[in-house]
Simulated scan of single mutants.
Amino acid sequence: MTPATSPSLAEETAARLREQLASGSLTPGQRLSEARLAAELGISRNTLREVFRLLTREGILRHEPNRGVFVATPSMASVLDIFRVRRLIEVPALAQAWPRHDAVARMRAAVERAESLQDAQDWQAIGSANMEFHTAIVALSDSPRLTAFFAQIIVELRLAFGLLANPEHLHRPYIQQNRAILTRLEEGDPKGAAQMLQDYLEQSERAVMAAFARIS
């Protein structure tokens, strides 16, 4: 009889895979090799199958009978919903933030990292820094549940970005805007920073949806 898979190991491994997806190292539509991935992660194939089930339920992966497991490809409807959720979570978190919260240092580090990568034009890494910036905004809420939920949203968002042909067009404008939002917060105006973020998210949503329309 096969021993039961440890839930903690499956959940820990699922978190590692989410990180790979959020970093852009796994791309929409990519087929995942069970044997190779189990070896890379140092886990059994039984554990990996449980991880696949967890992430399939979250909509991050999809299972196709007789074909295998694939990274999910977001739809326009799912992207619209992601931005709706982001406005509901990020804007209030920033509006109610304490300017000296520990997460502000994480926001600053993410902004500085993105700025340092501009000359190299490493847009994938800049995209990751942008994700770190927004994750830090959610951390301002001091809610572990919101932070955990947002980690899933970030993965889905990164998958959506992975479908777009011009990452520079997507990410370059937000390097400066992230800096402006951070500055407004550090100056003691979280509500002003939140209004800037609201406008930012609406701009980002329009840009992403326009790019989706071109590839549809």
Results as ranks from 00 to 15, higher is better:
residue 95 A to F: 04
residue 70 F to P: 09
residue 139 A to F: 01
residue 161 F to C: 13
residue 37 L to A: 07
residue 54 L to Q: 13
residue 120 A to E: 10
residue 184 R to H: 11
residue 1 M to T: 02
residue 89 I to Q: 02
residue 109 A to T: 05
residue 211 A to S: 15
residue 186 E to D: 14
residue 216 S to A: 15
residue 30 Q to Y: 04
residue 119 D to M: 07
residue 114 A to Y: 11
residue 206 R to G: 03
residue 49 R to D: 09
residue 193 A to I: 01
residue 57 R to P: 01
residue 78 S to G: 01
residue 176 Q to I: 02
residue 159 L to W: 10
residue 8 S to Y: 12
residue 131 M to V: 05
residue 196 M to F: 06
residue 148 A to P: 02
residue 160 A to F: 05
residue 179 R to S: 04
residue 79 V to Y: 14
residue 67 R to E: 15
residue 152 Q to K: 09
residue 98 W to E: 07
residue 50 E to Q: 10
residue 2 T to F: 10
residue 166 N to Y: 02
residue 61 L to Y: 12
residue 134 H to R: 14
residue 38 A to N: 05
residue 63 H to Q: 14
residue 29 G to W: 03
residue 117 L to D: 14
residue 21 L to R: 02
residue 31 R to Q: 10
residue 69 V to T: 10
residue 11 E to H: 06
residue 12 E to S: 07
residue 6 S to A: 10
residue 121 Q to L: 07
residue 13 T to R: 01
residue 74 P to S: 00
residue 202 E to N: 13
residue 120 A to V: 00
residue 155 V to A: 11
residue 170 L to P: 13
residue 115 E to D: 11
residue 122 D to S: 09
residue 4 A to G: 08
residue 148 A to T: 04
residue 71 V to I: 12
residue 80 L to F: 09
residue 9 L to V: 11
residue 181 I to Y: 13
residue 132 E to S: 08
residue 32 L to I: 06
residue 187 E to P: 08
residue 45 R to P: 09
residue 180 A to D: 15
residue 209 M to P: 09
residue 20 Q to P: 02
residue 140 L to Y: 12
residue 14 A to I: 04
residue 212 F to E: 00
residue 96 Q to P: 02
residue 185 L to G: 14
residue 84 R to L: 11
residue 169 H to T: 07
residue 152 Q to C: 06
residue 140 L to A: 08
residue 192 G to Y: 05
residue 25 S to Y: 01
residue 105 A to H: 12
residue 187 E to A: 15
residue 149 F to E: 08
residue 152 Q to H: 15
residue 89 I to D: 00
residue 87 R to K: 11
residue 70 F to E: 13
residue 159 L to P: 06
residue 130 N to V: 08
residue 88 L to Q: 14
residue 205 E to A: 10
residue 184 R to I: 07
residue 113 R to P: 04
residue 148 A to W: 02
residue 145 R to Q: 07
residue 25 S to C: 00
residue 176 Q to C: 02
residue 101 H to G: 05
residue 161 F to A: 13
residue 215 I to P: 11
residue 68 G to Y: 08
residue 70 F to I: 06
residue 61 L to G: 13
residue 43 I to S: 08
residue 195 Q to R: 09
residue 10 A to V: 05
residue 84 R to S: 14
residue 121 Q to G: 04
residue 165 A to N: 12
residue 96 Q to E: 12
residue 175 I to K: 06
residue 162 G to K: 08
residue 94 L to W: 04
residue 9 L to S: 09
residue 136 A to V: 03
residue 107 M to P: 15
residue 28 P to G: 08
residue 20 Q to Y: 04
residue 98 W to P: 00
residue 142 D to L: 04
residue 132 E to G: 08
residue 118 Q to Y: 11
residue 89 I to V: 10
residue 114 A to S: 15
residue 153 I to Q: 15
residue 92 P to G: 01
